[in-house]
């Protein structure tokens, strides 16, 4: 280890600015940020976003990994910092650190069928993987996507989701938990879509959503012949540093910020099963 490495401040944020902002649903928005110099990421990785004087929050990247002109983040305003990010307008400053963490197994998925299951805002980090697959579509086998939201008004990236549904090179199924009379799609939890998905027994699954949804999805996939090592889920814990120094993100033996967030279900299942771990 060189002295220079030892002496640079790993918690230093890089000031940048918001380029654009889109309100997705009542409490969720997407911002485009000018990427810090040299920034690049792999699908499933996250950044630490800083709002001047307010604080920092971990946010997974929801944009296209092939685009270097913009860094896209989808955020639900549920706390002091995320609400402050939500008030930022194009041109406003913010700080970025990262990207950090272990993302989706894009390399391992090459040449194989891919199953993607997202629940609610869990679709955000999966969207980067979908972009990656569509950018290099020939590198992957069958691609089946199942997404579920609580209500039709909560559908994320709604135009894009409908556009993906029209494509012939991927299969996308959409469901909502509850809906009014005008809803014409399926109603029910996302795990109910799993029997409709096509894949061979070497397929790779990427699953992101609330923990309980990931657990039931992973079990349903396993029941359909998936090896638990081929099912990947995204863990979530409190994060203060993103770099293995604050201890907050521990989940069993894992530092979610360094060894995750993405983990094979074979490793996550035991953790999911222990209350308040």
């Amino acid at each position: 280890m060189t002295t220079a490495q030892l002496r640079s401040e790993p918690m230093l944020t890089t000031p940048t600015r918001v380029l654009a902002r889109t309100q997705e649903t009542a409490d969720t928005f997407t911002i485009e940020v000018e990427p810090p110099p040299g920034f690049s990421f792999r699908p499933g990785e996250f950044t630490m976003l800083y709002v001047y004087g307010v604080g920092e929050v971990p946010i997974s990247i929801s944009g296209d990994p092939d685009r270097t002109d913009t860094l896209t983040l989808t955020i639900r305003a549920v706390g002091k910092v995320t609400e402050a990010v939500g008030r930022l307008q194009p041109g406003d400053p913010l700080g970025v650190r990262g990207p950090y963490g272990v993302g989706w197994p894009m390399e391992a998925a090459r040449g194989r069928d891919v199953v993607i299951v997202g629940g609610g805002i869990g679709l955000a980090p999966l969207r980067s993987a979908i972009y990656e697959i569509l950018n290099h579509r020939a590198d992957y086998g069958l691609v089946s996507i199942a997404v579920g939201f609580r209500r039709p008004e909560e559908i994320l990236y709604v135009d894009q989701v409908h556009e993906w549904r029209q494509r012939f090179d991927i299969d996308l199924e959409l469901t909502v938990d509850t809906a009014g009379d005008t809803w014409r799609g399926p109603v029910g939890v996302v795990t109910r879509l799993i029997p409709m998905l096509d894949f061979s027994d070497t397929a790779v699954a990427m699953v992101c959503g609330p923990e309980i949804m990931m657990m039931f999805t992973a079990r349903a996939l396993r029941d359909r012949g998936f090896a638990p090592d081929n099912i990947h889920v995204s863990l979530e814990r409190n994060m203060k540093c993103g770099i293995g120094l604050c201890g907050h993100c521990q989940y069993g033996q894992h530092f979610v910020c360094m060894a995750g967030p993405v983990k094979p279900f074979s490793q996550a299942e035991r953790l999911f099963g222990i209350r308040e771990l």
């Binding site: 918690m11 800083y50 001047y52 004087g53 307010v54 604080g55 920092e56 203060k240 540093c241 120094l245 604050c246 201890g247 907050h248």
Partner: peptide
């Protein structure tokens, strides 16, 4: 070794600090 971080602006807002 667990720490938390605190971000706070100084009174006039001209600077903001990160503490752990």
């Amino acid at each position: 070794f667990c720490v938390t971080t605190e971000d706070r602006p100084t009174l006039d807002g001209a600077t903001a600090e990160r503490w752990r």
